[in-house]
């Protein structure tokens, strides 16, 4: 089986795909907001108050603020991953929405780019809500909202594209558990979301540097607490590399899956 390795054909038509997903989301606004926003908020409140009592401050930052900055990023990952796997798989394999789009003047590249941008959009929607709550809980810089949402958007693109690579190989929903257990959960635990990554053994710290989430946290956290961002170009480059490589892989493998 030969792979179609051509570069993505970029245009504006991914917007039609994005718009369709947005309209569906708009129709089921209540449940989807709750799922996006409710669970991370519970984590934030329970751990922030519960653990915060014992921890007090982490490196001179209130634990609530430390945690909020981490959860904003991990929520970007979870939302985009969920959208790129379960929701995209439903559209691709169950509802055959992609087939319908492919009968219209949309090409697979338009569909995949539209999915990735939509994953990023959902990340922004969920994370904006958490940012606002965290802002009212205190210790968060309101002025960081827009730069942080940009970080979330690009991280969401990376996580969404990575999830679509997994989706390209999925035969059923069960397949996604491998990715969650082997990739997403370790990334969530080891990227400095709940505690500073330097509490971990050095070899784990080094390994965790390969995670895009680590880099998202390292940009978003200082921005939100009003500190200086170190190594910004490096963090941006890692996220950009994940976007580029995962998008290309998602395209190649989804072409192989859909256009046979």
């Amino acid at each position: 089986m030969t792979l179609d390795l051509s570069l993505p054909s970029l245009g504006f038509r991914w917007y039609y795909v994005w718009k369709r997903h947005f309209l569906v989301w708009w129709k089921v606004l209540g449940p989807s907001l709750l799922a996006n926003f409710g669970e991370p908020l519970l984590y934030l409140l329970a751990l922030g108050y519960g653990l915060g009592m014992f921890v007090g401050q982490v490196k001179g930052v209130d634990y609530m603020a430390f945690l909020a900055t981490g959860i904003v990023c991990s929520n970007a990952m979870n939302t985009a991953t969920f959208e790129g796997m379960y929701a995209a798989f439903t559209r691709l394999a169950m509802q055959r929405t992609w087939d319908a789009m492919l009968a219209a003047p949309l090409m697979l590249d338009d569909i995949v780019i539209g999915e990735i941008v939509w994953c990023a959009t959902r990340s922004v929607i969920g994370c904006a809500a958490i940012f606002i709550v965290a802002g009212f809980l205190g210790s968060i810089q309101w002025s960081a909202f827009i730069p942080v949402m940009l970080v979330i958007f690009f991280s969401g693109m990376a996580f969404g594209a990575m999830a679509l690579v997994v989706t390209a190989f999925a035969k059923s929903y069960d397949f996604f558990l491998y990715y969650f257990t082997l990739v997403i959960t370790p990334m969530m635990l080891l990227s400095g979301v709940f505690f500073p990554a330097d509490a971990l053994p050095v070899w784990i710290q080094t390994g965790a540097q390969a995670f895009p989430l680590s880099h998202a946290v390292e940009i978003a956290r200082p921005l939100m607490i009003g500190a200086e961002v170190n190594n910004l170009p490096l963090h941006l480059a890692v996220i950009a590399a994940y976007i580029a490589v995962a998008t290309y892989m998602a395209l190649v493998f989804l072409r192989r899956r859909m256009l046979v």
Partner: peptide, 21 residues
């Protein structure tokens, strides 16, 4: 096999599909 959009109404199915064009 019908691949209508189950999240949309009848009219929305047509208008969303038209938007692809």
């Amino acid at each position: 096999k019908d691949n209508l959009d189950p999240d949309f109404t009848v009219a929305e199915n047509l208008s969303v599909y038209a938007s692809y064009f």
